[in-house]
Design a protein around this nucleic acid. Structure first.
Lengths: 214, 214, 214, 214
DNA sequence: TATGAATGAGTTTTCATTCAT
DNA sequence: TATGAATGAAAACTCATTCAT
């Protein structure tokens, strides 16, 4: 089953520059985007490999050719999703704490909603996909750490309350956004402005120092 | 396959036919508990009616006898879950705000973890089960309102910060607990004491009035 | 299974006059009508015993109590249908050949359309219900004979063409009405007046003596 | 169960997987023939996809691979049946009215009885398969029109009675053959020669001009 | 490298039938 | 008599996976 056929993959002619067209990696990325789109649209339970192939406009054989099995595909998707997630956050100006938080909290700024929806779907099912759960643990922990670092800087600057450790604040904020994401597809009106804006403002108020409270 | 537990099930005296003595409502409740257990254990996607029947120790025919189809079963489970959830909250001493919040936030107090896990699984999939989504909207909104009422009382007593409307605070706390529930099965160690206790304490600190902050 | 319990049935208190209320036979007849209604509405393939019990407003147990199994029920229905069919025809003034034919051909005169629809459904499936096929052979042959007798009388009176044996004419007319019945549910507009009337008139023209033709 | 034919099917060399050489259309046609055979043998109600797959010597998965669902399969069968039916009629010498009628009426000439039996089964159930009913309306109307055209030619030639419109005559003949088809499986002896021949001869007599009648 | 026909286990659902009450 | 809970086989359908081409 796991023959050595794959070894020949490394014997690509030469590392071409730019986006390698027709390349294995490119096609794989294309398929991963299709998977993400399907998960965002149909949910995790409804994401069959057949639908993925239809979304990607290719055959079922193509999907199983690029991914040995479904588990491998899901894991690849998870990694890809966290990569995209990291990029979204890395694009931020890391100097300004409030800007980052606004960006972090304000999903309306986020170009690709599919990423959010899909990652959430996978987070929920991570429990039953053990191989994928460890990825979640590692990468999600990294995200929380990144946010914690920003918050700690804010605490030093005096713009974030200091009575709660940055790490804990980070955990709370992450949990809160996860909770929002869960209800967003069910009650979208609650997350559109101006109501949605209130959530962000009040979240910032929660973590502001006492001097800024009335 | 995973365990030989099933063998003990097959050694039942004999598959009895005909009209049993038990009443319909009791059996229905029993089946609903089986569904909840399966969802909590296998997740929503893995909750097939076959597994439910095995969990309940009956045939698939029996399950479809009590529930016309899967959707009806899921809806019945949703109602049952919210009922259980309401009971958990109603059991509280409604006078003491902090006690309620402790209870609300401290899942270690909650006897039946299955209820939490299953309700969360259903919340996530409500989006793709329209008939069920409306139930979630109504009943979950009621839960948030109940919490908001308690928080408002706390604000009048001066034990809850007053710069954020009680309704918004309630939304934030609910989102936060949802976010915790999501990660709990993946990283259980983060939610056991003493670490878990820190989460509750800090959540209470977040909503405490500024005078209590340092 | 076929215990002697049924023998006690004959020990009814006394042969009451009129329609025996609550009697076994009455209930059975009631159920048969329900079966006929279901077959007419849902077709043979869709006529499950559950639907019959719902139609009759009783339990599934009641149906299986009155009919040992489905085959027996279908046979009972077949007999009942032919009985009703005979009654419809017997009600006719047997003197007037054309009146009978009109009645025979004009289903709009027939009070109970269900009888026609159900009997046709059963005729089609008789082939795969051997026990029922023999009933069809006997009773349907009797119907054709009755029609043939009327036609023969018409031939003697000179109102029916004589170049074709009455028996054959009867077969042709029966086949024709069967063919109409088949298409009636699919293309009802073709069988409503005035178009439907044309069919009857022309059928009568087909069997009229040559002198009446132009 | 009824016969041990199935045992010989299990002794196939080995259930081959993977892409076979045969083209899709050919296999589809093969499957359609299997469906027709099953319907002709078991009736519409008994034509399950499992039996179809057994008839075709493949798995149920293969059948659902070629037909998205049963309705689509039935529709494909209907189209195929009408195509075969058209071919039967097109094979005729269209010049000779009586030859066509003989062919039309004489099913003993028709090689593939399955076509007749299956098409009749579907006609009966068209009522409960709306998507299929429209096909029946269109294609069956086309058949009647074709027959009407031939009859009209016959009327002009003087070989068909002129007191009844060709279109009505066509309807009557079609209804008559449908009625025959219905009883054929139940009382086959009535449709074998010489008795069956009488039916055809007399049908021709019914539509003959009065001059040819005695 | 890529295809897509075919598989077979699994899912929801329906149904005739059985039987303790 | 009559009920209705429960059964178990079969139906339609889905899907991850395999593999000859």
């Amino acid at each position: 089953m796991s023959t050595n056929v794959k070894d020949t993959r490394n014997s690509q002619p030469a590392p071409r520059r730019g986006r390698p067209k027709g390349d294995r990696a490119a096609k794989r990325t294309e398929l991963l985007q299709a998977v993400i789109a399907v998960i965002a649209r149909e949910g995790y339970a409804g994401a069959s490999m057949r639908k993925v192939s239809q979304q990607a406009g290719c055959t079922t054989g193509a999907v199983t050719y690029y991914f040995a099995n479904k588990e491998e595909m899901i894991i690849a998707v998870a990694e890809s999703l966290f990569d995209q997630f990291d990029q979204i956050l890395d694009g931020d100006d890391q100097q300004d704490v409030h800007a980052l938080l606004h960006h972090w909290l304000d999903w309306s700024n986020i170009s690709d909603t599919d990423t959010w929806l899909a990652i959430f779907q996978l987070l929920v099912h991570a429990r039953h996909e053990p191989a994928f759960a460890s990825i979640v643990r590692e990468r999600y922990a990294a995200l929380r750490s990144a946010l914690a670092a920003v918050l700690e800087r804010g605490q030093q600057e005096g713009s974030i309350r200091q009575d709660i450790p940055a790490r804990v604040l980070s955990d709370q904020l992450c949990a809160m956004t996860d909770g929002w994401m869960m209800l967003m597809p069910i009650e979208p009106e609650r997350f559109e402005s101006p109501h949605g804006h209130t959530l962000i403002t009040s979240a910032l108020a929660l973590i502001a120092p006492p001097s800024e409270q009335r």
